[in-house]
Amino acid sequence: MSDTAVSTDGNADPAHRPEQIILTLLLFSGSAAFAVFGALATDNVDFFRTHATAWTSALLATPAFYIFARHFARAGLNHWWRLFWTFGWLMIVIHFYFGLGIMHFWDPVSVFQRQGFAVAGPIFLLQVTWLIDIGLAFIRRDWRFSTGWYKWWQLVAYLIAFLNFFVSLLVFQNDIQSLVIGILMTLVVVAALVQRWSDGEHAHE
């Protein structure tokens, strides 16, 4: 995935094709419809929607994880990253609505009571860091080649998101779907890191 046109100004937004927006929008819409209507064929609609929105958020964010792991501080992020990162975040907001609003009756304290601070804390932290990171990606011109504190911020936001998904999907092993998506997401990131290393090796040759 690379942008079709590269700006001569490294910090300027590169041009993008409408297909990028359309494809990510389509994936997001399809995911939302899957969560809403697929639930009607299950035994517990709210439970399914809570889980399905988490699965699809992870799936939407996975291309963004890949791009970030491979290109961050190297070739630079791109529109694909920003779009998948944004729609992944939108889906986690819907997940938050079902998880906190429906399953926990808008009682955040009960989430901490039930899951403990070590698990619940990062979940709430993710809602904040991801939101801020999306905001920054749309208001800062240097979102592709960040420097200084912003560079560190992007890295921290990325790690918080990845670790949240990793723990929720793979460590907790709630169901087979989570396990499969968790493994897929992890393999994709590992592949990106291998390619990043390989890119570096080639650059030195």
């Binding site: 297909e19 399809g30 809403v36």
Partner: peptide
């Protein structure tokens, strides 16, 4: 492209409306 946009919007609107 247009078909994809329409499908996306229909799915989104149907989900929200439901």
């Amino acid at each position: 492209n247009w078909a994809a946009v329409v499908v996306s919007l229909v799915l989104l609107i149907a989900s929200v409306a439901w």
